[in-house]
Design a protein around this nucleic acid. Structure first.
Lengths: 121, 121
DNA sequence: TTAATATATGAACAAATATTCATATAAGGT
DNA sequence: ACCTTATATGAATATTTGTTCATATATTAA
């Protein structure tokens, strides 16, 4: 066992308690980080933005990202698994679309954050 | 060169063009995915939530996450690099705090997303 | 100025993630 | 039934990310 993990140094016991209580109110913390993980790749983020307001198929998205259809399909599978997109079959073609508006809300806040920082806050 | 990347199959040229134009308006796409990457780890997400409304030092955060102070410091460095937190020195202690409110906005939307999905939308 | 505290950082290793290639499945056409 | 199209998936490899351990730096106290 690591001694550093046992005899632990804590300066602000009160703040630690506040943080623990607060984290208790965020029950699905793992799922939340999974959601961010899904959006943490430029390619997947492009896919999500491309699906804002329209349905697209795998081959379209592969063309957009300039990757193989297999690679695109793997990325899309992650987005499906994380419940960000869903699909609808029309004959041979699977059309992908966003599950809800949360994704775009996240994208907008993220864009605001990075643009504000670029302007020196 | 991969032939699949050259003779590309595109079904919806119009939608592809819409997506390309739309992505053009998201200039800082890499920075956006970096921001999500920073929040894509449960430990770092805990740190960010813990800092909602209060300052904490590295040893507090290490205690909260139950990891070594070195590990906590490495995680915090990522949050600093991605401009999510900043610090203030008071003597020997470095106090960390959130840069702005965007982080908490993101956390709230993410929480709403995962709780709604858990309830079957 | 020596020692102690608080934190940062570099390097090595371990674990997770992404990409590629080959193959599988599912629908539609012939 | 057989072939083609559209997409999914498994396995192997390549890349990225996280953790640990040792060491470095900065501030304060003795």
């Amino acid at each position: 066992m690591n001694p550093e993990l046992c005899e632990r140094r804590i300066i602000h016991e009160d703040r630690l308690q506040i943080a623990r209580d607060y984290l208790g109110r965020y029950a699905k913390l793992e799922s939340m980080s999974d959601l961010f993980k899904a959006m943490a790749d430029p390619g997947r983020l492009k896919i999500l933005l491309a699906l804002d307001g329209q349905e697209m198929c795998v081959c379209d998205l592969a063309a957009l990202l300039e990757v193989s259809e297999s690679a695109a399909s793997h990325q899309i599978r992650i987005l499906r698994t994380m419940n960000l997109v869903k699909n609808r079959r029309d004959g041979q073609v699977l059309y992908y679309r966003l599950v809800d508006d949360h994704v775009m809300q996240l994208a907008r806040v993220a864009r605001d954050h990075v643009t504000e920082l670029a302007q020196g806050r």
